[in-house]
Amino acid sequence: MNTEDHRPQSDDEADGAQNDSRDESERRLRNAPDDGEVMRDYFAFNEIFARVLSSADHELAASNRYLFWSALGAGAGLGLTFVARVVFTEVAGEESPGLLGNLLYPVGFLIIVLGRYQLFTENTLTPVVLVLTRLASVASTLRLWGVVLAANMIGAVGVAALLAWFDVFTPERVAKAVEMGRHAHEQGWFDLFSKAVIAGWIVAAMVWLVHAARDTISKIVFVYVLMYFIGVAGFYHIITSSVEVFYLAFTQSDIGFFPLFPTFVLPVLLGNTVGGVTFVAVLNYALFAEHEDSDLFQRYGEQLSAKDWFFGSAARRISR
């Protein structure tokens, strides 16, 4: 028998084996996928960012006519959220929308996300990251926001009027709808703003996760869970919450319609915008800034000059 095969390893041989093991580990780490090309059901952070940029490019390049009608449908679609809250709250016997009353709060958002309608709070994420990277102008984003917000609000007013002037609700559900509207209307300006900031953050985070999802089921789960959270927590969304107070104004003589805009619509609008932009778009851009010289980022073309970035009147199509 060859005794050399069983002799103990020397210190040099042991050190050599450890070095070989370390080199193998480092080699495997260098070869690990970091761009999602191998794990096709998973997007890396910069790939999600690229998908957001592409979506924003599409939205900014859309015509005012398309944006208006799509956003009008979105405003009307979110009226279903109000209907669902009223019906489920009354059926569940809850004094105010709770776990059961908010069960279908996400229904309007599911219609919008899966149907690709234009919703203002969704657009607080995608165009802003495009502007932050100086691939689109501030003016083009303001155009998008103006058209979409106006159409969203028109849709919300239309649904509130329809529900108030036609026999859609039973008397019991009318009482619940009025109670919900009064609860929102009685909130203070800063309370509305504060709760709207969190709602804007959640909606923008939902948009980011939807861009990270590859299949429809995942998107449905993301939308349902996060939007249900908004309803249960009592946060305020500019369109769904506006439907509530508009309904109140159309059914109660002591509530004026136009005073709602400075006292309710404005703080919720500002809160949603601040939440969406600050907590999601800016933070995500800050994280991505480290990779702005990567091939993935460079394929989106040259950045705009300072003048074009601020005053440009139209979105520039990103080079593919």
Rank of each mutant, 00 (worst) to 15 (best):
E26V: 09
R27L: 09
R27D: 08
R27Y: 03
D34N: 07
R51Y: 01
R51Q: 04
V52W: 02
R65C: 06
L67E: 13
F68D: 03
W69Q: 03
L78I: 09
G79T: 07
V87G: 00
F88G: 00
F88Q: 09
F88K: 01
E90I: 07
A92F: 04
S96L: 12
L103M: 13
Y105R: 01
P106T: 07
G108C: 06
L114N: 03
G115V: 11
R116G: 00
Y117Q: 15
F120H: 06
F120Y: 10
T121E: 02
T121N: 08
V129N: 03
T133D: 12
L135K: 12
A139H: 14
R143F: 09
N152T: 03
N152Y: 01
A156G: 07
L163N: 01
V174D: 11
A177D: 08
R182N: 10
E186P: 06
I198M: 15
A199C: 15
I202Y: 02
V207S: 07
H211T: 05
A213Y: 01
R214G: 01
S218C: 02
S218W: 00
K219I: 11
K219Y: 08
V221H: 06
F222R: 01
Y224W: 07
L226N: 14
L226G: 05
Y228H: 03
Y228L: 06
F235H: 12
F246V: 04
F258S: 09
L260P: 07
P262T: 08
G271F: 02
V282Q: 06
N284D: 13
Y300Q: 03
G301F: 03
S305I: 07
S305G: 15
R320V: 05
